[in-house]
Computed example of a mutant assay.
Amino acid sequence: MRDGEINKKSNVSMVKDFVLLGFSDLPNLQGFLSGVFSIIYSIILFGNSLIIGLTRVGPALKKPMYFFLANFSCLEICYVSVTLPRIVVSIWMQDRTIFLRACATQLCFFLILGATECFLLAVMSYDRYVAICHPLHYILIMNPKKCIQLAAGSWFGGIPVQIGQTCQIFSLHFCSSNKVGHFFCDIPPMINLACGDTSMHELSVYVVAMLFAVVPFSLILASYSKIISTILKLPTAHGRGKAFSTCSSHLLVVVLFYGSASITYFRPKSSHSAGIDRLLSLFYTILTPMFNPMIYSLRNKDVIAALKKLIFKT
């Protein structure tokens, strides 16, 4: 067997590499998909890089809110770069093989950056909570030192646990098939390949998901419950509308990311199917990073003003 060595006595595959089936069930669309994903990746790089650049040169974008937005855009570039370039190369070269260590590395970075996104979305909601509920103390509370600490915690907080989870997943014994019904190495399809009882591994996945997804999401909900309560108490419709507009972009990103990711990771193994997992993964790994720059820029007057100023200068 080219893609693995089978131990005949135990009927367990000593896998050295995997085959990412990805979009192989669409043979007539390989060239089209390669072109589409290349364009999407270019849009993600350009859009998020533009936001990072604007937050550095725009005087009106020196607020803590835009510091976190720049971090978020940088995260999106890293997040999508873990999966999308390899997808494009695999489709273009018609070589879907990925070595075990490369698969483990991809999963590890994917999980670490996914945890960072959960934390950073929670930090951004906290920033909006302070800005709307405690506007007079905003600059004092969200001082530069605290912003850096919150951003650093978001980036590095999930590293030890996610490395441990990756080691746990790849300590499993995989059965004779090494064909992964997905376009990158993710937890559900890897567990589906495992032999024997994987209930304890699934339980650990749920526990980690609760820690890195549900807890930040609960903090986001708590922040927005306070925010909405404060906004509804504002005396004028104009004030309420302005306050809602500063939160709507972030809230839309939260719904897109958590909606698709939670369905993927909180469903039991028996209900997973390659097609549904692949479709859901497209949302939180590719489409959300592509739409984020549009969501934030089109609904933010400061970003639009900084962009116009940059264009007219050039």
Rank of each mutant, 00 (worst) to 15 (best):
T55P: 00
T314H: 15
L256G: 02
L29S: 04
L33M: 08
Q30K: 12
A102R: 02
I51H: 08
T314R: 15
S225Y: 09
R56V: 13
P216R: 09
N71G: 10
I311L: 15
G275F: 06
C74S: 11
L150P: 01
A151W: 00
M142D: 08
F99D: 13
A102L: 07
P64W: 11
P188S: 13
F170V: 07
Q162W: 08
V214K: 02
Q94K: 12
N292T: 15
Q162R: 08
V130K: 04
I87E: 07
N178T: 10
L61R: 05
F283K: 03
V88D: 03
I132M: 05
V88G: 01
V255E: 08
T230F: 10
I276V: 11
I52W: 05
F110V: 09
C103R: 01
L150D: 01
F18K: 07
M124H: 06
C74M: 10
K301P: 06
Y66D: 05
I228H: 07
M65E: 12
N71V: 09
A305R: 15
G53L: 08
D3K: 04
Q162E: 12
I148M: 15
I276R: 09
L120I: 01
S225A: 12
D17G: 12
Y258G: 01
W155R: 02
A152C: 14
G114Q: 04
P27T: 14
A131E: 09
L20Y: 07
A60G: 13
H173A: 12
N28I: 15
L45K: 00
N71K: 01
C78Y: 11
P189M: 06
T198F: 08
I169T: 12
V254F: 09
F184Q: 05
A194M: 04
L282C: 03
V205G: 13
R101C: 15
S81Q: 13
L61V: 00
M210H: 04
G275Q: 00
F291A: 12
L50W: 01
V12A: 09
K309E: 13
C175G: 03
Y296G: 02
K9I: 09
L298H: 00
